[in-house]
């Protein structure tokens, strides 16, 4: 396609996503552990139990290593004079254009995990849609918020 947007999000996002991945896999361990126990108690065929364990391992690997990595690699954005471009997606590559004139307001947002790693998420709202750039360095996010609202104010059109 056309050249990709240039700016990447913070490398620390990877850490945050891995932690989230670990939490997600913990659930799979709990459910999987319960199933394995049941299997041992009720004499399920051995291959079933082994398959189950392999499945859980694959699941954990995907959510803690593979997906965050791929997601981070794909995540790019670019703020230009008249528009913002965002690219993301693990299975499906999505690229979105948001013209500055359509931006209504910009917010930054930060959960506990993001705060710990000094990151924050920027949310760009138009009259009909909301777009998110996750996990930027805090000053970078603040700077982005400021520059978008400056550029958006310059271009003042009716809805």
């Amino acid at each position: 396609m056309v050249p990709e947007p240039q700016t990447r999000i913070s490398k620390r996002a990877l850490v945050v996503w891995r932690i989230t991945g670990v939490i997600t896999s913990l659930f799979s361990w709990i459910v999987g552990g319960a199933l394995v126990t049941l299997g041992v108690l009720f004499d399920w065929p051995v291959w079933m139990i082994i398959a189950l364990i392999i499945l859980i391992l694959i699941f954990s690997y995907l959510f803690t290593f593979f997906f965050p990595k791929l997601r981070w690699k794909r995540w790019r954005y670019e703020v230009r004079e008249q528009e913002i471009e965002i690219q993301r997606g693990v299975f499906i590559m999505k690229r979105t254009l948001i013209p500055m004139v359509r931006v209504q307001h910009v917010d930054t947002q930060q959960g506990p995990l993001l705060r710990k790693y000094q990151l924050s998420t920027v949310m760009i709202s138009t009259a009909a849609t909301v777009h998110e750039i996750p996990a930027l360095e805090m000053d970078e996010a603040e700077e982005l918020r400021r520059s978008i609202s400056r550029l958006a104010r310059v271009a003042d059109e009716d809805v």
Binding site: M1, F91, I92, K94, R95, T96, L97, T126, A127, T129
Partner: peptide, 15 residues
């Protein structure tokens, strides 16, 4: 002028 945002998407198989 009235389009708020435009998104192009492509899955692995589409690609």
């Amino acid at each position: 002028e009235k389009i708020q945002s435009l998104t192009a998407r492509k899955s692995f198989y589409q690609n």
